[in-house]
Design a protein around this nucleic acid. Structure first.
Lengths: 213, 213
DNA sequence: ATGGCACCGATTGTTCAACAATAATAGCCG
DNA sequence: CGGCTATTATTGTTGAACAATCGGTGCCAT
């Protein structure tokens, strides 16, 4: 049964992102390998990949645990986002295929918002920003964003107040898309800067509130 | 003999970057494991990490080979650099510790240039840009740059004309540092934009010249 | 009781040997 | 000479084994 590896990595990745293993959870090689029906060695290869992506944390001789991003991580993630996303939007063409993905993400967000399905709202929000990055046509920047978006999802899982985290940004996504199409990239980039500052503040606020009970 | 893994990954990484295995070289698990004195399984874990970093390419059932970046990769690498480096410089503080590293890299480059030690000139150039990215104080952006800088070194190895690639930029580094200190980040960022465009053109020119004999 | 210390158990780190699955190659046939 | 098949070398994966390390347990001395 070869080629399990990539599938295994992706499966694990999805399950972690979906919150099946809470952030901070220790992942035992033996029990997890048994549970997944693979050998320890194969599982360890997947671990190395996920650790490199920042989804799990590896401490020598103490195994791996699901990453649990702290305040410093969130700050850094948003810093990176502010470097990449507004620039991608500013230089992006309205004719770029990713614009369709942006529009779909906006609509998906609106639909899910109405259904009060916060988790899906969060997914749609991420898809929206993913599409923004895709405007840059840069595989390496897309990979960076994929990784930090996954980490951010873990941070969201820690907070576990999806409505407050995701709901406010659906209308902002719509507005941002319209600004981009009607006023062009630079105007949208400026708007996105504020957007990201607000988003960061929202996440950090929820974080510190957590720490204080 | 535990904990070999991280050491092994770093050792392999250094040897690849240093050109011990030419870009495109196929890395056989059996022979390389024997050569390095580790087991296949351990080596495979290191492979997974390096593949994730883009240093080696993994094709299922065909093994791994040292990455050999093509024109598209170089273009993308420079695109990513233009997203990150000028912004880091624009927002960077002259009091940041990384400025010392920038200065050291400039001086190292000048010394090596005089000695006509092109390889060291290249290393100093990379250290200079690494320091620029460090201005952003972002571990994730630093990691991105570390990876694409490594890939770029592989591209340089393919070209193998280190003088043309590295020598012209020593004086530019000095000038850029002075602009940053005397005129501030935004002015330096603008200068760096042109710098990177020129650098990209240099690399791409050498590339296409390669293809034509 | 308490603080430090040696031991013990559980887990990770690593190796080895084996087999399955695949891709490239070589050789065969038409 | 081109296409098909068989061979072969390599990767993919497994299971078992042992070494090394970490954390905790319980003992001992104060």
């Amino acid at each position: 049964m070869p080629d399990v590896e990539d599938t295994l990595t992706n499966a694990l990745r999805r399950r972690i992102i979906d919150g099946e293993f809470a952030p901070g959870t220790r992942l035992s090689e033996i029990s997890l390998a048994e549970k997944l029906g693979v050998s320890r060695n194969t599982l360890r290869e997947a671990f190395r990949v996920l650790a490199e992506q920042g989804l799990i944390e590896h401490v020598p001789h103490r195994g791996v645990s699901v990453a649990s991003p702290g305040v410093a991580d969130v700050v850094d993630i948003y810093r990176a986002r502010r470097y990449v996303e507004p620039a991608a939007l500013a230089a992006g063409s309205p004719l770029h295929p990713a614009v369709a993905a942006m529009r779909e993400a906006v609509e998906q967000g609106e639909t899910s918002l109405e259904a009060r399905d916060w988790r899906t709202v969060g997914t749609a929000n991420m898809a929206f920003h993913d599409a923004i990055v895709a405007l840059a046509d840069s595989p390496r920047l897309e990979r960076l964003f994929r990784d930090i978006a996954a980490e951010l999802r873990l941070a969201f899982l820690e907070i576990d107040n999806p409505e407050a985290l995701h709901a406010p940004f659906v209308t902002r996504n719509r507005a941002l898309l319209e600004t981009f199409l009607e006023q062009g990239g630079p105007a949208a980039a400026a708007e996105l800067q504020d957007y990201l500052v607000l988003s960061e503040r929202t996440v950090l606020g929820a974080f510190t509130r957590l720490r204080h009970g």
